[in-house]
Design a protein around this nucleic acid. Sequence first.
DNA 1: GTCTATATACTGATAGAC
DNA 2: GTCTATCAGTATATAGAC
Lengths: 217, 217
Amino acid sequence: MPQRQTSMREAILDAAEELFSKSGFRAVSMREIAQASGANLGSISYHFGSKDGLLRAIYDQHSGPMNRRRSELLNEAQRIRDPEDRLAAIVRAFILPSLSEADGSVGGGARFARLRAVVMAERHEEAQKIIAETFNPINLAFIDALQECLPHLPRADIVWRTHFLLGAVSYTLINPWRVARLSDGEADGENTQEALAQIVHAAVAAFRAPATDGAAA
Amino acid sequence: MPQRQTSMREAILDAAEELFSKSGFRAVSMREIAQASGANLGSISYHFGSKDGLLRAIYDQHSGPMNRRRSELLNEAQRIRDPEDRLAAIVRAFILPSLSEADGSVGGGARFARLRAVVMAERHEEAQKIIAETFNPINLAFIDALQECLPHLPRADIVWRTHFLLGAVSYTLINPWRVARLSDGEADGENTQEALAQIVHAAVAAFRAPATDGAAA
DNA sequence: GTCTATATACTGATAGAC
DNA sequence: GTCTATCAGTATATAGAC
């Protein structure tokens, strides 16, 4: 449930996140953000200094809670004894906060995840730095947890499959309509529950595959 | 081996593709393209009419040969009798032209695939239309071929897993350095052979998984 | 903190000489 | 087909009134 905006600053943050997640960073002008939030153009500079500063503020607002959430879910998952069940729980914990529509923050985790995916693809330097700093540590924690479930696998294979998992999530957030288009509407890319079930199932199967033999390709 | 440019028009196409694939569509100005290609700013408008026209010309140049290549590889793969081997060959045929560094055209298929991935993420309307028109038919042919290997799977599951496969390829093309970063250099995202082996292996395992049960998520 | 007005730079596109 | 010059539009950022 989105909470009421108490200040102009929050209204700007909310509008900017909405617009950036839809169209990317470069394509959205500060004028559009001003109009959507009801703020004045000058106010944005006053509160955030620059457009980059606004982007940084959006990350600051979300990355703490989101990574805390992922840590909690990872800890819960790691308590599961059975390695098969644990693997699925870890995968689920890894991506749930990115797909969940409501995670306590305004607009839900999916919007921020979509923003990250879109902005990452733009190769905006500032954004790449922020993302790497913020998400690498927690990603490495997940890789360690996966390695514990799959001790026979080379770490490189686990990294590759984790990378593919991130790619699948990112692609689904950026192009949800593609699933519907390729399936004639039978599958629905906008349906978070369906996406989560499909992606966890596919990823677990991929992780369970034996080590990749380079010559086999 | 890149072939020599015989005309200014080709030089512009080549420079534009290089820049778009690196930084996306919106971030690259026509002036940058002019400078990189040695052409005059006015010449770009003369040859391609507009910036959108230039993007369209890049697609026109590549999509024909690339889809022909994918059709050939798909046909070859479909001749394999054993369903297990055939599945791997189809997956390989699906993504090889996008990852291959040299496919006969200037700069290789990987550069054009990276361009598609980056531009797609920008949600440029013109580009989305072109991509859907050009790649949906061949993608549906691959899905049909996969369904033949996996007759027990609901088509929706095959579409979802194909979607994830496209996401993994796209993500790897956009962020190859992420693999090296997460693995401390042990895995190399820029190594096409390694990426191909890893992604085919993981995708085949995902396709072979039983049907996804919605309740299991 | 919020507003107007504006400085400065860059964008895609075009007209017209050569 | 290539050039220069330029138009009209938009961008971010800022200075200063209130």
